[in-house]
Write a protein that binds this DNA or RNA. Structure first.
Length: 257
DNA sequence: CGGCATGTTTCGCC
DNA sequence: AGGCGAAACATGCC
């Protein structure tokens, strides 16, 4: 579930906690620093930001960083802003909680829960975000050209690199390459100016649409499509699944080249 | 049961 | 030295 779009949706939901004071906290110590609870108890939330796929809860003290791994999700005041597909049965099981923050006036419901069955997500204090590339919502032709021009790796792999573009994940990358008509195997540096511009245009156009629809699973290459590889919506040619640098790429050999 | 999964980090090989 | 791919991580689901 979690790519930058999900992080953005959760960022917006978490703004409800701005101005509140963290009265108590609990974490699964396997995913958070040992001093976490003692450090954050008593802090006041001042702002919620996002850096790529990471949500940053800013306070009058240290910043709390939420990484979601493959299956993390956020529940704010008992309400999950995104509910879909994966782990659909018995979701939000309490034993999958990795973080609970309680704030003044909440009663028994945690203001913030990080629920993550697979436990690849992380809770960090003052996370280092300096290595991230340009944010996916601020992508420009020149920034992408600069980032791609020396790379021989597949364009798909380059776009997944958070140092190139921050926030795009496997689903969004396949979606953008599908819309842009670009073969995911192409070496990044082989894209010409027109193709790079086309890709940037597609990212600018499609990301807000997917955000409105509810996240990275709401593209035309939905998880169902990815699993079944039916004929391409655009030209009827069967979609293909290839492994590129360890990640599944779903694409249309007919209109992507 | 085997395989697969929206991510990141680490290791080892050029 | 640095770029790159594979493996590891951890667990649920089909």
């Amino acid at each position: 579930m979690p790519e930058g779009l999900e992080a953005e949706i959760w960022r917006r939901a978490l703004t409800a906690t701005v101005g509140r004071r963290i009265t108590s906290a609990w974490v699964d110590h396997r995913v958070a620093p040992t001093e976490f609870v003692s450090v954050v108890t008593g802090l006041s939330v001042t702002a919620i930001r996002r850096a790529g796929k990471v949500v940053l809860i800013e306070t009058d003290g240290p910043t709390i960083g939420l990484h979601f791994g493959m299956t993390g999700r956020v529940i704010v005041d008992g309400d999950a802003p995104i509910d879909r597909l994966e782990y659909a049965s018995g979701r939000d099981r309490p034993e999958w909680d990795r973080l609970r923050l309680f704030t003044n006036g909440d009663g028994a419901v945690a203001a913030v829960r990080l629920n993550d069955p697979r436990r690849l997500g992380r809770v960090r204090l003052n996370p280092d975000t300096t290595g991230l590339g340009v944010d996916m919502f601020e992508l420009s032709v020149t920034s992408l050209e600069d980032a791609l021009k020396c790379r021989r790796i597949a364009i798909k792999t380059a776009l997944l690199d958070q140092a190139v573009v921050a926030g795009l994940g496997n689903l969004c990358v396949d979606e953008m390459l599908w819309w842009g008509g670009i073969d995911p195997h192409r070496p990044a540096k082989s894209l010409d100016g027109d193709e790079t511009k086309r890709l940037v245009d597609v990212v600018r156009r499609r990301l807000p649409i997917m955000l409105r629809r509810g996240g990275s699973t709401m593209g035309d290459l939905s998880p169902d499509v990815r699993a079944a590889c039916p004929p391409c919506e655009r030209d009827g040619h069967p979609l293909r699944r290839d492994m590129i640098a360890g990640r599944t790429a779903v694409w249309c050999p007919d209109h992507q080249h």
